[in-house]
Computed example of a mutant assay.
Amino acid sequence: MEDGGGPLRLATRGSRQALAQATAVATAIERASSRPVEMVLVETTGDVRQDVALHTIGGQGVFVKEVQRAVLDGRADLAVHSAKDLPSEPAEGLRIAAFTERRSPADVLVGSTLDELAEGATVASGSVRRRAQLAVARPDLRFVELRGNIDTRLSRIPESGAIVMALAALEILEMTDRAAERLDVDRFVPAVGQGCVAVECRVDDVATAGAVATVDHAATRRAVEIERAFLAELGGGCTMPVGGHVHDDELHVFLADPAQGRAEGDVVALGEGGSHDDDLARGREAARAVRSRLA
């Protein structure tokens, strides 16, 4: 909206997790900017097509395109997404006006710890990254597909097995007691942007961008932009077994080639007297390095 004072219309998916994230963003914007916020619920391809694996229907974009379209069409002023669901290339006509402060970026096992899983146990996950990382740690494990909302996934823990999910999803729903083990982020590198919520608006909507800027978290923005530079250089999304995470002024990256049964990782130092642009360049270089080692 261009008048700077009316309600902001916030487009979001309708799942319990998405609504909880969107509500937290809406509350923060209202408190910081005094602009009221209204919800616009959108159903995405990823929500509808729960019968197939994510990597077969478009990867990251399946959870965001329809939400973005609501803003581009003028039905909403803001689009709110889990940052890990955003493709690495920006959508034409939109800009990321805020990266909210990141919750925990880690993955968790629900149902069993890694060490307690029996030989050949079943782990359910819809993420090719999570499967590849767990296969490196435990080559004996068997993997099956897992889709659906949080409650659906929690109801489908394999017998004597486990499921893998983002700790942030449990945090926003106050369900962290369900986690059996928090996986170390250095060994099990999270998805790019995991734990962060991104807020988009139209590129020419100055009033909305100003209101949303009140919830932008500078340290999270820096970290996620470096992670996204790494992913953009690879040219892929969640169709690839890839992870990238910035913490303690280091970029930790992971890339696997399941066909070859190989995986590569790296740790890149950041912020050593350089600018943010230098750190983005280091992210891109890390992508080229791990990709070349898998070639």
Rank of each mutant, 00 (worst) to 15 (best):
M165W: 09
I57Y: 00
V42Y: 06
G237M: 01
N149F: 11
L146Y: 06
L146V: 06
A223F: 00
V67F: 01
A287W: 03
R75W: 09
G111P: 04
E38R: 12
R131E: 13
A97C: 07
R102P: 08
T44L: 08
R69E: 13
L183S: 01
E272G: 11
F63L: 12
R262H: 15
L231C: 07
I172V: 15
T113M: 11
P241R: 05
V215L: 05
R138T: 07
L255F: 04
V189F: 04
V52W: 03
F254D: 04
V42E: 02
Q68D: 14
V71T: 01
I57A: 12
L154C: 07
Q21G: 13
G5L: 14
D279V: 08
R182Q: 14
M1V: 10
A211R: 01
T220M: 01
M1F: 09
Q21E: 15
D266H: 10
R202M: 04
V71W: 00
P241I: 08
A295T: 13
D278Y: 04
P190W: 04
G5S: 14
F230N: 05
T176D: 03
V40Q: 07
V108K: 03
E250A: 15
V192I: 11
V128K: 12
E225H: 07
A135D: 12
G58T: 02
L141E: 02
E101R: 15
T23V: 11
Q133K: 08
I163E: 06
R142S: 11
D279Y: 04
S127Q: 09
E159H: 10
S82A: 15
I150A: 13
V192T: 11
G265D: 14
R142Y: 00
F99W: 11
H217V: 04
R13V: 07
V242S: 11
L170V: 06
T27Y: 08
A132M: 09
A18F: 03
S104E: 13
M1A: 10
K65A: 14
F99G: 02
T176I: 07
V290C: 01
V62I: 06
M39V: 08
E119K: 10
V185L: 14
D47Q: 11
I57S: 06
V25A: 14
D73C: 13
V189M: 06
T113P: 09
R178P: 14
D3T: 05
E233K: 11
P105M: 09
V144W: 04
A263T: 03
E181S: 06
E171H: 00
A198I: 05
T214A: 13
A53S: 09
F63N: 10
A20G: 01
A289S: 12
F254W: 11
R182G: 11
L78H: 00
R130Q: 10
D186N: 15
A79W: 00
L173T: 12
D266C: 14
E225F: 09
L114P: 00
R153Q: 15
F143D: 02
C201G: 06
S33V: 03
A98M: 02
L255Q: 08
G283D: 04
D186K: 14
R284T: 00
S34H: 10
H247K: 14
A24M: 05
H55Y: 06
A180D: 10
Q260D: 15
V40D: 13
M165S: 08
E92H: 12
A26M: 04
I29P: 02
E264P: 05
P90K: 03
A11W: 00
R187Q: 15
P241K: 07
A229S: 08
D140C: 00
P190L: 10
